[in-house]
């Protein structure tokens, strides 16, 4: 269940309280997020929409521990991440966050399986265990037969599938997707979104996604708009209505 008017007693997986983020540009402070609150439960699929510069990516970066807020807090599974040191935050990201970006960001000199294996290199898994995990992740995204292909030998949709496999291979607590279909044609975008939906419905993954595309956003349980630095609920999508919807 997603809430943007959360109180202090929530037991949600992700809890955001009074989140502020201010940038300085040319000496002028620019407040991107203002006192933002958010609760996201395990298995929720949330889409963030809003005009360019509204702070969608900034919010995603703060939720993923890639950036630190000016004020406020972000807790995930009881871990308050806003006060973690850089080193601890890096370890936390490795365990809890799967990232999917608009332009895939695969390492071009590594094969699909080597790209997917990257997060597992940070674990204590043996080589054969890592291989098993990689094969499973590639099977989930339907790319078993492309394991030894390099990114340049794959289509855009396939590259994004590899990026999703890389994001889920270490079984993170939640996935952050920044415009995951922004670089794809409609057909490929539909396939990617079907895959993301499957991750939520079949594998109970929690997904937070930024998108400009209303059709893509409509696939989420909840669509939230960022306006003037605060989140506004856009209404229940058909999926979220079926699943119980936002509070």
């Amino acid at each position: 269940m997603v809430s943007v008017n959360a109180d202090g007693n929530s037991k949600a997986l992700i809890q955001v309280r009074g989140l502020n983020k201010t940038y300085r540009r040319g000496g002028e402070p620019i407040q991107v997020l203002q006192g933002l609150n958010l609760d996201v439960d395990q298995g929720d699929f949330v889409a963030f929409m809003g005009p360019s510069g509204s702070g969608k990516t900034t919010l995603l970066n703060l939720l993923g521990g890639l950036d630190v807020p000016t004020a406020g807090s972000v807790s995930v599974g009881g871990d308050e991440i806003t006060h973690m040191s850089s080193g601890r935050l890096t370890e936390w990201r490795a365990r809890h966050v799967g990232f999917v970006f608009q332009i895939y960001n695969l390492v071009p000199v590594l094969t699909a399986s080597q790209n997917v294996e990257l997060p597992l290199l940070l674990t204590r898994l043996s080589r054969s265990e890592r291989k098993q995990h990689v094969e499973s992740a590639l099977a989930i995204v339907g790319l078993q037969g492309r394991a030894e292909h390099f990114p340049r030998q794959l289509s855009g949709g396939q590259e994004q599938r590899v990026a999703i496999a890389r994001a889920i291979v270490s079984d993170p607590t939640f996935l952050l997707c920044d415009e995951p279909t922004g670089d794809l044609d409609r057909k490929s975008a539909d396939e990617i979104m079907a895959l993301v939906e499957e991750l939520v419905s079949k594998h109970n993954k929690t997904v937070l996604m930024v998108t400009h595309d209303p059709l893509v956003a409509a696939r989420a349980h909840t669509v939230l708009h960022l306006e003037k630095g605060a989140l506004v609920e856009a209404g229940k999508s058909p999926h979220s209505a079926a699943a119980g919807g936002a509070a």
Binding site: G87, R93, F99, P119, L122
Partner: peptide, 14 residues
């Protein structure tokens, strides 16, 4: 630079 940033994002330390 981008690849190194991704490595750091997914948990590789400095």
């Amino acid at each position: 630079t981008g690849e190194l940033a991704i490595l750091k994002a997914i948990g590789f330390k400095n």
